[in-house]
Nucleic acid binder design. Structure first.
Lengths: 339, 339
DNA sequence: ACTCTTTTCGCAAACGTTTGAAATAACCTC
DNA sequence: GAGGTTATTTCAAACGTTTGCGAAAAGAGT
C-alpha cells in the first residue's frame, strides 16, 4: 500500500541527531548550529520531507479545515457560495470540507457531528429548509467552534451571519413589476420558517402596499420549486385569470412558472410578467431571459469565509456580527411588457 | 476560544480509572467488568463524548478524507459527480475535501500538494483542460496514494479511471441527427489534448463516415464554450449556409449555438438541428429543450468513489482498472425536424 | 584553575487514542 | 497453602510534531 512518507524522525535517525533538533533546524531556530541546519535542510529537501498535517492538528488543535454544509451543491447559488468561500480560505492556507444536507434536517445533524469530530476549525452553514430544531447548532456554539450562517439564518442561534437584503431585493423586484404595468401580482413564497422566506414575502407585500395595490387571499402561494410551480400556476390562473405578474422566491420556481404560463398559452411577459430571485445561470438561459434579483452568492461566500477566519484567528470573544449585502435587480425580458 | 471537547482522559479522570480501560469499555471489549463498562458508557453518553478523529488518523495513518479536485463546481456536470462521490463516501464514513483547479494547471498542482500533506486517503480527479504535464500525478502514484480519474483521463498516468463511452455517445447523437434529416452537420469540438475531446470527435466522424456523408474542412470547429459558440456560429453559418445540424461537445456550447442560430433568424430545429452532450440541468430549461447525451455524472461519481475505496481498503496491488459507462441519448425538441 | 556565559543539543511531555503485555487481585484446586 | 487459572485493570509505547527546560561542552574572563 502506501509508501512511508518521510518524517522528522527519519531525518533525525539518518543524521544521528534528535528529532527536536531537526524540528528546530527546519524552522531556522537560532539555537541551532548553522552547519547542522544546513545538513538538515538539505536532506529534508532531498527526501521531499513534508510536515505531517495530522500530527500538527493534534498538537495545535487546529486543522486548517473549514466545514461547509449546504443543502445541495448542484444548485448554482450554493456552488457560487462555495467558490467564494474556497477562494478566501485558500488564500489563508485553509481547505474546505463540503457536506450536503440535501435539505434534510437529519443529514444536517449527522454532518455537523461528523465534521466536529474531524476537528474542523469552523463551520459555514446554509441551513436545510426542513430544519426547525436548532440544538445541533447550539451545541456547536457551546463547544466554541466558530460558525457563520449564510443566506438562510435563524434568530435562535448566536452566530455570525451573512445575508442579502432580501426584503429590499423583493421590494425592488415587486416595484419593478408594478412600474411595468402589473396590477395583480402573486408571490410564490418560500417556507415561512426561514428568514429569507419571510423577508422576501414582506418586501413583496410592502411594495404592493406602498403602491396601494390590494392583496387577495391568493396573493401569497407557498411554492418554491420548479415542479410545484409547474403544477400550481395553471390551477391558480384558472381561478384568478386577471393575474398579470408573478414574483417567485427563486429562479427555478420562476422558470417553472414561466413554463406553466406558456403551457396554457399565455405569454411572458405581455400577459404575465415574471421575476425571479437569485440570478442563477439558468436565468440567463431561460426564454425569455429572466428578470431576477442578483443574490451575489460569490460575494456572500467570500464574506462568510472572511468573517469565519477572523473569528478563528481572534482571541477576543466579540459579539455576533451580521453582514447584509445589497442586491441588484437584473432586468431582462421576462418582466418588460409592451406598453 | 474553543471549549474543551470531552476526551477519554476526561472520562478516565472522573471515574478514577485509566484511559485504556475507558477505551476498551467504549468498544465493548470482553476484558472489562460489566459494571465498569456501564459506568463508562453512561458517562460518555452524558458528556457527549465523540472520539477525536485527528488522533485516530495519526495512529492509524488514515484520515477518512478523500480529496476531490475538479475544474469548477459551478458546472452542473461536476457537481453531480461530486454528489455521487459524496454519497458513496459518506456511506463508508468518509468525507470529501473539494478543491477547484479553475481549469488551471498550476492551481491543480498546488491543490495536490496541499491535500497530500493533509494525509488524504486518496484522490478523485478531473483534470484541468490546460494540464499537459503529468508529473504531479506521477508523484502521487509514487508515494502510493490511490487515485481515480473521472471523465477526463490521460494515458500517461497509471491509475484507475472511470469514463463514459464518449465515442459511442457522439456516434449515437450524430446518427440521430442524420436520421432526422441532417445532411451537413458540424461538430463543435473540445480541446484535442483531452481524451474526451478526441473521442467525441471520432464518434462524430465515424457516424458521418458510416452514413457516407462527406466531411468538409469546416466540419470540425474547436469550440467548447457558450460564449465562443455565440461568436463563432454566425461566422461559420455565413460562410456555409447549408449547414443543417450542430453537434456540440457539451450542453452549454450547444445552447450558445442555439442562441446564435436564433439570433440570425434561423430556426432550431427546422433549419438547424442541435444536439449537446452532458444532459445538464440547462438542457431541460433551454428553449427548445435540448437533445443531448446523458453523461451520467452521478453514476460516474459513485463508481469513482467505489473504485477508490476498494483500492484504499485493499492490501493487494492489483493493476489499474478502467470503468466505462454507457451513455444514453436523451431526445428532446432541439433535434426533431418536421419531416 | 575556577566560575560564568554562550552555544548547541537532547529529554520529556504533550495532543487523544489504541493495544500488546504486564500487573494485580481474586478465586479455585488438590 | 503452593500452584494455577481467571478476571480485571494499568503500563507503556506508538503515531509525528513542537517546545520549555535542562545539560553538556566550549570558550571567556579573572
Amino acid at each position: 500500500m502506501r509508501g512511508h512518507q518521510v518524517t522528522i524522525k527519519d531525518i533525525a535517525k539518518i543524521l544521528h541527531i534528535s528529532p527536536s533538533t531537526v524540528s528546530r533546524a527546519l524552522k531556522d531556530h537560532p539555537d541551532i548550529n548553522p552547519q547542522t541546519k544546513k545538513n538538515v535542510q538539505d536532506l529534508a529537501k532531498k527526501l521531499k520531507y513534508k510536515p505531517n498535517q495530522v500530527a500538527l492538528n493534534l498538537l495545535q488543535k487546529e486543522s486548517k479545515l473549514i466545514g461547509v454544509i449546504v443543502p445541495e451543491i448542484i444548485h448554482y447559488f450554493f456552488s457560487t457560495i462555495i467558490s467564494g468561500i474556497e477562494k478566501i480560505a485558500n488564500e489563508s492556507g485553509y481547505h474546505i470540507i463540503i457536506a450536503q444536507s440535501n435539505e434534510s434536517y437529519h443529514k444536517e445533524v449527522e454532518n455537523i457531528q461528523a465534521l466536529l469530530s474531524s476537528n474542523i476549525d469552523g463551520f459555514i452553514i446554509t441551513m436545510a429548509k426542513t430544519t426547525l430544531n436548532f440544538d445541533h447548532f447550539k451545541n456547536v456554539a457551546e463547544i466554541g467552534v466558530p460558525m457563520v450562517f449564510v443566506d438562510r439564518t435563524c434568530d435562535k442561534v448566536t452566530a455570525d451571519k451573512v445575508l442579502v437584503d432580501d426584503f429590499d431585493g423583493a421590494y425592488k423586484a415587486t416595484k419593478h413589476l408594478i412600474e411595468n404595468g402589473c396590477k395583480n401580482i402573486i408571490h410564490l413564497a418560500g417556507p415561512q420558517n426561514l428568514d429569507i422566506g419571510i423577508q422576501r414575502k414582506e418586501g413583496f407585500l410592502a411594495a404592493l402596499n406602498d403602491s396601494n395595490i390590494s392583496i387577495g387571499d391568493y396573493s401569497i402561494q407557498i411554492c418554491d420549486t420548479h415542479d410545484h410551480a409547474l403544477k400550481l400556476i395553471p390551477e391558480v390562473l384558472s381561478r384568478h385569470n386577471n393575474i398579470d405578474g408573478i414574483f417567485a422566491v427563486n429562479d427555478l420556481t420562476a422558470i417553472g412558472a414561466m413554463k406553466a404560463v406558456k403551457s396554457i398559452n399565455k405569454k411572458v411577459p405581455d400577459d404575465i410578467a415574471v421575476c425571479g430571485f437569485t440570478n442563477s445561470f439558468i436565468s440567463y438561459i431561460a426564454d425569455p431571459e429572466l428578470t431576477t434579483v442578483d443574490q451575489k452568492g460569490f460575494e456572500m461566500g467570500q464574506h462568510a469565509a472572511r468573517m469565519l477566519l477572523k473569528r478563528i484567528q481572534s482571541d477576543e470573544n466579540y459579539g455576533p456580527v451580521t453582514t447584509i449585502l445589497n442586491t441588484d435587480l437584473i432586468i431582462r425580458k421576462s418582466s418588460l411588457k409592451k406598453k
